[in-house]
């Protein structure tokens, strides 16, 4: 410890000595006790858990496979800053697999889409369109396809109430409440029979 007093402040040698002294490996090789202390450095002493910056924590469930790992989403200023396994869950007890641990990366992925895109028939590129325009156009197209194809009864009088010209795929990644509205609207409302999700694939 005496060499610290001899250290000429500010010189190149001094900074080098300081850095070497701060380097944790020689300390660990000398068998310094305690994992935390032995690994400490000037930088790590200043580190704080990212989670401390959160102004909100909410409960969530992993969006990948069907094991159903519980997660905690930490957010600051309305943006996610970390996603961790929920230690209370009897399913995952705080753990997450490589996919589940990537949930934060998924939420903030540069690949996330944030605008509606439209590709006109024969076009070679997308164009951005307003959400409201897309919704109205889709409603009109759905009505047109349904009206052009709807069959109330077969020639022998058998009731069918359906359209074979519209189809839907997806659901296994969605919420129960979403699946319920999809089935209710598409099947009970519009008479679509080609309603399928990934349960078979």
């Amino acid at each position: 410890m005496t060499h610290r007093n001899r250290r000429p402040r500010g010189t190149l040698t001094g900074r080098l000595v300081g850095a070497l002294q701060d380097w944790s490996v020689p300390r660990q090789l000398r068998g310094a006790p305690g994992h935390a202390k032995a690994a400490e450095s000037a930088m790590s002493r200043g580190l704080r858990p990212r989670l401390e910056q959160a102004d909100r924590v909410g409960t969530s469930i992993c969006p990948y496979c069907a094991v159903g790992c519980a997660q905690l989403i930490y957010a600051r200023d309305g943006k996610p800053i970390a996603v961790e396994g929920d230690p209370r869950s009897p399913v995952n007890q705080g753990t997450l697999c490589p996919k589940g641990a990537a949930t934060f990366g998924l939420m903030v992925s540069p690949g996330r889409l944030d605008r509606c895109l439209h590709r006109a028939p024969g076009a070679t590129a997308w164009r951005e369109v307003p959400l409201d325009w897309a919704m109205e156009r889709i409603a009109q197209l759905a009505k047109r396809s349904r009206d052009e194809s709807f069959v109330s009864r077969l020639p022998d009088g058998t009731r069918v109430n359906h359209t074979l010209a519209m189809a839907s795929m997806g659901g296994a990644t969605l919420d129960n409440e979403e699946n319920y509205l999809i089935k209710k609207l598409f099947s009970a409302g519009l008479g679509m029979v080609f309603v399928e999700n990934q349960a078979r694939v």
């Binding site: 469930i61 069907a66 159903g68 889409l113 439209h118 590709r119 409440e177």
Partner: peptide, 21 residues
């Protein structure tokens, strides 16, 4: 084909329930 690509939400960005395996 006229194609619409619309951005969806993830759990954490919407409320709802999943049923696990």
């Amino acid at each position: 084909t006229e194609v619409f690509l619309m951005p969806g939400s993830l759990s954490g960005e919407k409320a709802g329930s999943f049923t696990n395996t």
